[in-house]
């Protein structure tokens, strides 16, 4: 089991980041965003498009060669594009729905449709084959008994730094506090002089950039594929619910626990190498914990929804 700990930590960071982004958006907008996985994938697919060599066999829309710019430059551009994409979704889709008093369930169905639509656009854009970023291959080394490549370690550290920064942003900045205020009550925020629409827009941008970053990390650790976000979406939902809906710290914790448990369970004897069943244990545990504590580990009772 211990040999899976390295992979577990990596999946834990991916799910934790994805869960924070999802939880933040849900908290402020009350949107259960099934297209969240596709924003994650957008970060990775865009980075692949910008960073892969034009000489590689990769073709986008079966026709266009990749751009071939510097990898870190590609990451920055892709994260910014994810932010712009999130802003567009809010301005052109979700804000009009909100102004027309669309119900939460109807909006949820819209996000499912959006998810399917975007995922298949990526399928056309980047083909069904998994692809990798242009990064040199590295051997796994031993870090305190945990097997990881040096790049894996960098990704883990970066992931934790980003989570700490998100926490500091929400706790100490004026915008972060306003996001939490709108999450508590958007009406009360409005009558306090806060333009809730602006805060919701900023939340979409922030959550989408964080989701894009999650996808890039996932691409670095594993590979890039059209449905990569969809494949981890259930685990992200599980992490968010386990930690407590609407609490960012809870989402980080829940996501991390789910990710680690999923990967650790691969090493269990009774799994007998059936890695395709690896989600079972973690999701079973999530159901058990919610039976005992419906508000999640860090959630408060008024946030059960």
């Amino acid at each position: 089991m211990i040999e899976q700990l390295g992979n577990g930590l990596l999946l834990g960071v991916i799910i934790a980041l994805g869960s924070v982004a999802l939880s933040l958006l849900y908290g402020v907008t009350r949107i259960v965003n099934f297209a969240h996985g596709e924003i994650i994938a957008l970060g990775a697919v865009m980075t692949l498009f910008f960073s892969s060599s034009p000489d590689s066999s990769l073709l986008f829309f079966d026709r266009y060669s990749p751009i071939g710019i510097n990898f870190f430059g590609s990451i920055v551009i892709s994260i910014i594009l994810c932010g712009i994409f999130g802003a567009s979704l809010e301005i052109f889709l979700f804000r009009p729905l909100r102004k027309n008093n669309f119900g939460n369930i109807a909006v949820l169905v819209v996000t499912i449709g959006l998810s399917i639509f975007l995922r298949h656009i990526y399928l056309l854009f980047a083909s069904a084959k998994p692809s990798s970023f242009i990064l040199e291959l590295q051997r796994r080394e031993d870090y305190f008994g945990i097997q990881l490549t040096p790049r894996n370690v960098q990704v883990l550290v970066l992931g934790f730094i980003v989570m700490i920064l998100v926490g500091l942003f929400l706790t100490y900045t004026k915008t972060g506090k306003a996001m939490r205020a709108v999450r508590d009550s958007s009406d009360l925020a409005s009558v306090s002089g806060i333009n809730s629409d602006n805060i919701i827009l900023v939340t979409w941008i922030f959550s989408s950039m964080l989701a894009g970053f999650t996808g890039i990390i996932q691409g670095v650790i594993n590979n890039v594929r059209w449905n990569m976000g969809f494949l981890i979406l259930l685990l992200i939902f599980a992490g968010t619910v386990l930690g407590g809906i609407g609490t960012s710290f809870g989402a980080m914790f829940g996501g991390f626990v789910i990710g680690v448990l999923v990967q650790l369970s691969v090493g269990l004897e009774f799994m007998d190498g059936h890695t395709e069943a690896k989600n079972a244990l973690a999701l079973g545990l999530m159901i058990l914990i919610l039976l005992i504590r419906p508000q999640g580990i860090f959630g408060t009772k008024d946030r059960i929804s």
């Binding site: 009406d187 009360l188 925020a189």
Partner: peptide
């Protein structure tokens, strides 16, 4: 308002800060 008249997850100081937003 009659109900939901404070931001429960914010501290008292942060509640006042939100009131002073403008």
């Amino acid at each position: 308002p009659q109900v939901q008249n404070v931001f429960p997850s914010l501290t008292i100081e942060e509640n006042l800060e939100m009131g002073n937003w403008a």
